[in-house]
Design a protein around this nucleic acid. Structure first.
Length: 287
DNA sequence: CACCAGTACCCCATTTGGCT
DNA sequence: AGCCAAATGGGGTACTGGTG
């Protein structure tokens, strides 16, 4: 299969073109270095009804990018040639573009509140653009912020700080896998009651109660698309969720939490290299 | 460490089949 | 024909293991 190195640094393989498509690609490549062709004219060439890659029958006098065309890597080669034309004309500064693409995949995943693989697959599917820094993909923070992953599939994990300190507390009930962050285990001593950092995976429903003994609030959460944070410092639930129910009345909040089903946040599995231990709720830590 | 491929899982929209 | 529930497929996610 023919290969094309994109401005982003990525190598794109595209299907062996027909004679007509190959000729059109050659024409566009020549136009990149042709000073008599300006950007407007180049765009006209790309979206011409004569471009054999596009569909000429949908819009009169213009080639249309259909779903099939969008899925064809050859179209992305043509778009890259447009980018190269802009670079040649000085209307696109790749140094400035590269400066804007400042996030690694890991940083982008943290920022978007999704798994790293979700970012990589979005890049592969051209739903997120990236530039290559050596072997690393780099992403634009603005695009990452605008990235709206589907809410289908597994729910994105929630980052949870729970426990109790004098005057404040936050507990949850859930149907997922709650794992305590290794840093909170210390030297195999008892899990500290205060501010335990945990990660909740594979969840569909979470009940949260937070506040003080006299002023408690209740939230019922379901997987959602927006990154949110609820709770009271230092306690928090952070991640992609939506609030399906909120109760600000202390008595009703306590009753709602009591009625909620699921494992309690005090029953956490330790995420460590040594054998997994389950920490059971005790009278002392029940609060 | 970063990337990639494969797998399992989930939700939603559409299709299919049975019932009224 | 219309309605409803089950089955199916597509699109998307997280996770794991292998590779360079």
């Amino acid at each position: 299969m023919p290969k094309h190195v994109l401005l982003s640094g990525e190598t794109l393989e595209y299907p062996r073109p027909t004679d007509a498509v190959a000729a059109y690609l050659a024409r566009l490549s020549a136009a990149v270095g042709d000073p008599t062709i300006d950007e407007h004219r180049f765009i006209e060439l790309v979206y011409s009804p004569n471009n054999p890659l596009l569909d000429p029958n949908i819009m009169p006098g213009r080639g249309t990018v259909t779903k099939a065309v969008l899925a064809d890597p050859t179209y992305h080669v043509m778009q890259d040639l447009l980018g190269r034309k802009r670079v040649a004309l000085g209307t696109l500064d790749m140094d400035k573009v590269r400066a804007r693409y400042s996030l690694t995949v890991k940083e982008a995943a943290e920022r978007a509140g999704v798994h790293e693989s979700a970012i990589r697959q979005a890049i592969a599917a051209h739903r997120l653009s990236s530039v290559k820094d050596g072997t690393r993909h780099m992403l634009d923070p603005a695009q990452v912020d605008a990235f709206k992953p589907s809410t289908t599939g597994h729910a994105a994990p929630l980052e949870i700080v729970h426990g109790s300190v004098p005057g404040k507390r936050l507990f949850i009930k859930h149907d997922g896998n709650l794992k305590l962050a290794p840093g909170d285990w210390g030297e195999l001593g008892p899990v500290p009651r205060e501010a335990r950092h945990s990660r909740l995976e594979r969840w569909t429903k979470v009940a949260v109660i937070a506040g003080t003994k006299e002023d408690a609030r209740f939230w019922e959460l379901a997987p959602g698309s927006d990154v949110q944070t609820i709770g009271f410092e230092p306690f928090a639930v952070h991640g992609r969720f939506k609030v399906v129910r909120q109760i600000n009345n202390t008595q009703q909040a306590r009753q709602a939490f009591k009625d909620s089903e699921g494992a309690r946040s005090s029953d956490v599995v330790l995420e460590l290299s040594h054998p997994v231990q389950v920490v059971k709720r005790t009278k002392q830590s029940a609060g």
